[in-house]
Deep mutational scan, measured.
Amino acid sequence: MDPFVVLVLCLSCLLLLSIWRQSSGRGKLPPGPTPLPVIGNILQIDIKDVSKSLTNLSKIYGPVFTLYFGLERMVVLHGYEVVKEALIDLGEEFSGRGHFPLAERANRGFGIVFSNGKRWKEIRRFSLMTLRNFGMGKRSIEDRVQEEARCLVEELRKTKASPCDPTFILGCAPCNVICSIIFQKRFDYKDQQFLNLMEKLNENIRIVSTPWIQICNNFPTIIDYFPGTHNKLLKNLAFMESDILEKVKEHQESMDINNPRDFIDCFLIKMEKEKQNQQSEFTIENLVITAADLLGAGTETTSTTLRYALLLLLKHPEVTAKVQEEIERVIGRNRSPCMQDRGHMPYTDAVVHEVQRYIDLIPTSLPHAVTCDVKFRNYLIPKGTTILTSLTSVLHDNKEFPNPEMFDPRHFLDEGGNFKKSNYFMPFSAGKRICVGEGLARMELFLFLTFILQNFNLKSLIDPKDLDTTPVVNGFASVPPFYQLCFIPV
């Protein structure tokens, strides 16, 4: 058959498939802009700032609406009420993970971030239990974070109060905490193996944040037939998995079943207990991918939040002064901060919360999916439909947070200066898919920041009023603009 005829037939089939998918069930789905064949609503979305586009569309179609990214149908949730109703009140029905062709290629359905069903539930339950087990290797997770915080302070001392970009050092600290939990080992910041790991993690975040990856996920045929950065992403992930597998083999040879040292040991012990169960989800494949998931999810998000926190503290020296006064009063100079201190430091706690609220790190979270046909607000959402959640619409709700575009710790303080919780605080998402490392991340943010401010004054290279804190939105995360500062020993 003539190649031209084959091409026309293929394009015609794709067009018909697109029209059929977009028209099927439209009477039951939430409203939304009319999609174009094949490309859907992509032309109506700013790929570099999806969150802003969703906010604009919500003003037209309401808090629940339908979009098509290519052939992929998505239902968008915008605003606290619908997000709570879906992710919390109907948590089980909305607990699936959205379709990610690239991740599915890399992870093969294993791990904790992109798995679904029984596998996801069992691996998540085990990971939560293990991360909360403060007795691994007779050292609590808090001990590990405190140790890394001391190392971080010593690295900052080496800058000798000269101007520096904190990106690298602030990236090393949370990565080392995860390494300590998974591998029972922290690395020197100049260790070549550690630097290679950091390089792969950072490069992957840069790649994932590009519009090209959005295109690959919406048109998965590209993955096999086109060159691009997605190939580098898959190569980096394969490198990390190979490295983790080597460490798993080392653990198998040296493990003491009665004295687990780290996450890998705990997983291997669980595998041993379930070795007679042919349906067990505790396999080497799941261990390797879960460890890679924890490394990827637990490094860049925390380091970016820390980097943004220091920029905001530079911009608002009056806030920094209040935090340091609270540190001096509650902790002093002669001991290290600990998590028990947080309950006695409402202002510092409010500042950490406000940093996370203000920066809105992951504006749309990772997409969910419905696990069955769901009736939601008089609409029928078919099983498997991807759910896109606007966390921006919750964290920047102007009824809950007056002047949401302003950095103001009073958003989390009552009139008496006591810490005030808010149900709208969802930087880790909400419901059954809430970030498994939430507790660890909150511990790291509090301890790293208090250790830094206990030991250093922060000095800006320019007038604080002239510092730009506008986030650089890159399609996946909101990151701070480049800046330098000086760490002046107190």
Score class of each variant (00 low, 15 high):
Phe219Glu: 04
Val323Glu: 01
Asp256Asn: 10
Cys151Lys: 10
Glu253Val: 11
Val248Asn: 01
Asn277Gly: 10
Ser180Asn: 13
Gln184Pro: 12
Arg357Ile: 00
Cys164Lys: 06
Phe114Ser: 10
Tyr68Glu: 09
His353Arg: 02
Glu92Asp: 15
Val351His: 01
Ala86Arg: 01
Asn116Gly: 08
Glu122Gln: 12
Asn398Trp: 10
Thr385Trp: 02
Lys84Gly: 06
Leu152His: 00
Val374Leu: 12
Leu395Ser: 04
Glu325Ser: 13
His78Gly: 03
Leu245Asp: 06
Asn258Glu: 12
Asn217Arg: 11
Glu318Cys: 12
Phe482His: 15
Glu85Asp: 09
Pro464Ser: 13
Lys421Gln: 13
Ala297Asn: 14
Asp408Ala: 05
Asp89Leu: 08
Ser180His: 08
Pro337Trp: 01
Cys266Ser: 11
Ser393Val: 01
Gln324Lys: 12
Leu485Ile: 10
Lys84Tyr: 08
Tyr80Ser: 05
Thr302Pro: 11
Asp262Ser: 09
Val208Met: 14
Lys138Pro: 13
Asp191Pro: 03
Leu14Val: 11
Pro33Lys: 01
Leu366Arg: 04
Tyr347Pro: 00
Gly96Tyr: 09
Phe419Val: 08
Ile284Ser: 06
Glu285Cys: 06
Phe226Ile: 15
Lys399Asn: 15
Ile331Leu: 08
Ser209Pro: 06
Glu154Trp: 07
Phe376Met: 07
Pro211Trp: 13
Glu415Leu: 09
Leu268Glu: 00
Ala292Pro: 00
Glu415Trp: 06
Tyr379Gln: 02
Leu395Trp: 02
Ile19Trp: 11
Asp341Gly: 01
Glu203Trp: 06
Lys399Asp: 14
Met426Thr: 05
Phe187Ile: 04
Phe183Tyr: 04
Leu440Tyr: 04
Lys235Val: 07
Phe476Met: 14
Arg125Lys: 15
Asn56Phe: 09
Ile112Lys: 03
Ile178Glu: 02
Pro63Gln: 09
Arg307Gly: 06
Leu233Ser: 05
Leu314Gly: 08
Phe446Asp: 03
Arg144Asp: 07
Leu170Asp: 01
Thr167Gln: 12
Ile205Leu: 13
Ser12Phe: 14
Asp373Arg: 05
Phe134Gln: 15
Glu154Gln: 13
Ser280Lys: 08
Phe69Ala: 10
Lys160Trp: 09
Tyr424Cys: 11
Val319Ile: 12
Asp262Leu: 00
Ile88His: 09
Phe219Gln: 04
Arg329Glu: 10
His99Thr: 13
Lys459Val: 07
Pro35Gln: 05
Leu312Cys: 07
Val83Tyr: 04
Asp349Ser: 10
Phe94Cys: 05
Glu93Lys: 08
Phe412Trp: 06
Lys200Ile: 11
Ile169Ala: 09
Asp373Asn: 09
Trp212Ile: 06
Thr348Tyr: 01
Phe187Asp: 03
Lys48His: 14
Ile269Trp: 06
Ala441Arg: 00
Pro404Ser: 10
Asp397Tyr: 02
Ser429Leu: 03
Leu71Gly: 14
Phe4Ser: 11
Cys13Thr: 15
Asn418Asp: 11
Pro402Val: 13
Lys465Val: 10
Leu245Val: 11
Ala106Met: 11
Leu7Ser: 10
Asn196Gly: 11
Thr301Met: 08
